[in-house]
Every structure is written in C-alpha cells, then in structure tokens.
Simulated assay, not measured.
Amino acid sequence: MTREQFNLMSFLEGYVRNYRKLNLHQATNRSMFTKREIDYFANLGEMLGLFSFVEDTKPNLDYGRSRPMDLSWWKWDERIDKENYLYVVLHLERENLSRKDIETIDKLFCATEEYYLPHYVIGIQNVETKERINYLNKLVEERNLKQGSEVLMIYRYYDEVNSLDRIEAYHFNELSKIINNRNAISIVDNTGYWCMAFEEEYETWK
C-alpha cells in the first residue's frame, strides 16, 4: 500500500507557529492544553483530506485488550475499498503528566494487528528534566525498530533558570534513527496567553 508522503517537521513548524491561536491562557487547566492540541491535529488531518478520530480504538496485543488512541488519522479511498479504511496514517498521543512518559511510548508502539500499524506517529509529552529525553528517545528507537513508523517526538519541560518552557522535538525515520531535531521556547505573552517560537527566532521576541 502506498504510504502518504508527509513532512513531520513541517507539522512541527505549524504547531509552533500557530500555538498562540490555541488560546491557552495562563489560568487554563492542563486538560484543556491536551484538548486544544489534539483538536489542532484533528483539524489538520481533516484539512489534508483524511478522517480524524479522537479516542479511537486500537487493539493492544501486549495487554490483550483495546486501548484508545488520543488521535488517529485514517485513509479512505472508495476507488480501492468501498467498505473499509485503507490504513492508519497517524497515531498521536498527548500527555501532560511526566510520570506517564513511558506509558505514552507504550501506547504509541504497542504490539497490535497489522491493520492498525500507523505510518506516522506523533508523541507530545511533558517531561521532568532535559536529561530524561535521552532515555525516552532510546526507548522510541528500540520500540519503533519493529513498528517501522516515521516518528515525531515533542518533549516539553520547565527551565527554572530562565522561567520558561523548553520544547525539544526529534524526527525518527522508518529505520528508527534520529534524522532531525529542533528546539523551541514557550512563554506567556503580555496578554496572559501561551505562545511558542523556535529557539533561533526567540531573540526577536525580547
């Protein structure tokens, strides 16, 4: 089956540059961060002509039961199959709690039926420290060797020295090797809303 050709780093650029449009206020609770970010990617999938589903069912053979995906994109083409979706284009997980970082990776790379193997994976995860990222990336490399997805992992952590949030994003190819990475900064602007910019562009904000 032909794989959809998407550039995950372009998805990252859109996510960063449109973050202010999510209207996340400094008083907004964390569950709303998850909802707005998932909604952003759900809308993006639909604009790309795909079918987006929130809390979609996915068989988890590791646990012997189904577990929901935070978001999935499915490919439909009635010229090929009039009754079924062709395949899962994307599986996305978004997690606020740093203590669930390994669980997030488990969900993205669980053993499942072939029909549910995603071509692309996006994980958005709050982490406790920068040092934790190397450990989590090694888990992604190990788990994705069998799955063979193209992966974008977006990690967010608080920088106490500079009083801002840092974002580190890593792009893994289908062979589970990191081929690109990019960093961003997230702060509350002077109106009280969260916004984001790439690290190299942050100087223009000051």
Rank of each mutant, 00 (worst) to 15 (best):
Q26W: 10
T112W: 01
E200A: 08
R132H: 10
R17V: 07
T34M: 01
R166V: 06
E168A: 15
V188I: 15
I105S: 03
K35W: 00
K35V: 00
N134M: 07
K21P: 01
N126G: 02
F53A: 14
L152I: 09
V16N: 04
E103P: 05
M32C: 03
R94L: 00
L136E: 05
I105Q: 02
K21D: 12
Y120H: 08
I80N: 09
V89K: 01
I187C: 04
F109A: 01
N181P: 03
N60T: 06
L12V: 03
P59Y: 02
V161S: 12
N181M: 11
F41A: 04
R156N: 06
R36H: 04
D159E: 11
V151C: 05
R3V: 11
F53V: 14
Y115T: 08
H25E: 08
G192Q: 05
L97C: 05
E113G: 15
S10Q: 13
L90F: 09
N183K: 15
K138P: 01
R182K: 15
L164Q: 11
K146L: 09
M47P: 00
A169Y: 00
W194Q: 05
E168D: 12
L24T: 00
V54R: 15
L86C: 08
E37W: 01
T57M: 13
L136I: 09
I185Q: 03
N96V: 00
S186A: 14
I133H: 07
Y135A: 12
C195V: 08
T112M: 03
Y135I: 13
K100I: 01
L44V: 09
N162W: 05
E201H: 13
